[in-house]
Design a binder for these strands. Structure first.
Lengths: 221, 221
DNA sequence: ACACTATTCAAGTGATTAGTTGATTACTAG
DNA sequence: CTAGTAATCAACTAATCACTTGAATAGTGT
């Protein structure tokens, strides 16, 4: 009976890694691309020491790997299966935890306004030049990889840089925005603001990590 | 910034449910079919009160549901997506946690002896009557659902009931054994013992929950 | 060698968790 | 109504966890 106990204890180590909100947030950031400890601590709003400890827990659970370059240590997700696991966790939470449904319905008001654009549809229509793809993540995340041809305007600069999105020919062209993932507010927010400006805007289903996981083409820098 | 914190905290509730070995073991048992608290406590080797508390945690994380019938309360997995999540957790642990690889290589010695039989292959060859399918789980689990046409011989009775597996025509017929899942020792053990008896035996890839999740036909007593 | 930076380590605090034990509730059978 | 059973609840202990703080380590630039 010892093997059974042992193996479940090992699986539980992976579960433990997923049992803290801050660690899940760190994983979501890492899913966009590799980041240094300092960057992660800033973006997650944690102290550097605390962030470092969380990252080490994730490392011991085999979910991230790190690479030292000069003074900095860059962490990254250790495989696509980890991104897949995070997605599956999300799906279960969304389906079975009623508080998640409630939160989503409260905050992501655009959610049910219009169906998000499926990945394949975006790819096809972007190829035909029918839509403008908008990446609203911070420039570092955009630089680490993005949907080919996407324009990067972080949410904070959206109002000032609206003209970059307007079609030179004046015809109405739909904008498809995406961000970090299905529960990231950036793209929801962007779509809401663009619609306030009278523009035609929708969200891509999910975000960049899922796009990449689906094996679709990506562009770096 | 509150939404982000809130939503990750909710996801972490699901992670917490997966962060304890005993709970993962309970989930594996539940993945075979519904069980009462007492049955689960017995099979997991926990006190009834402790089992009940774990089950309630799983329930609050939305991973199991319960149904009261007379004195007993029957728990069951709340959806196929939960079984899928468990499988994904396993895959990540197996790929990235070195201790898991070590454990598997130490205990599951038959593992690399021969490739397990893919589900589709089993289905096809069983249809043609070329193989005997052996379910080595306890009768209650077999009763809750099994691969169509499978013979149920719990591991403890295997030696006594060998003749049930021998081909009446005397020709060599392969036996394919399965149990609870990819890391359950029952089928490994059965295959090892059958081979000691000079019989041709292999394992089905994974176990019953994965068979069912794949949408393949199942049979209930 | 020096100061400087990014990260990790070590020690400590309050909060949470796993498990035990005994009491309590909900239901059934006589 | 009473006795008996399955499950849950409540109270408690030991262990683990999240986070803070300050020190230590490793690497860079001068």
């Amino acid at each position: 009976m010892s093997f059974k106990q042992d193996i479940f204890a090992q699986f539980a180590r992976v579960g433990k890694a997923l049992s803290n909100g801050n660690r899940l947030e760190l994983l979501e950031f890492l899913a966009q691309g590799e980041r240094s400890v300092e960057q992660l601590s800033k973006v997650a709003g944690l102290t550097v020491a605390n962030t470092s400890q969380h990252l080490q827990q994730l490392r011991h659970a085999g979910m991230v790997t790190c690479r030292k370059e000069g003074l900095k240590v860059y962490y990254s997700i250790s495989g696509d299966d980890v991104i897949n696991l995070l997605g599956t966790l999300r799906v279960v939470a969304e389906r079975h935890v009623t508080d998640v449904q409630h939160l989503v319905n409260t905050y992501l008001t655009v959610k049910d306004d219009l169906e998000p654009v499926p990945r394949e549809e975006l790819l096809e229509r972007a190829r035909d030049g029918l839509i403008t793809v908008l990446d609203v993540r911070p420039p570092e995340e955009y630089a680490a990889g993005h949907v080919p041809g996407a324009v990067n305007i972080p949410l904070s600069e959206l109002e000032q840089r609206l003209e970059e999105l307007s079609n030179p020919l004046g015809t109405e062209r739909e904008i498809v925005a995406y961000c970090r993932g299905p529960h990231c507010v950036l793209a929801f927010d962007a779509v809401a603001r663009l619609r306030e400006q009278g523009m035609k805007a929708r969200r891509l289903e999910d975000g960049y990590p899922e796009w990449q996981l689906a094996g679709l083409p990506v562009e770096k820098v």
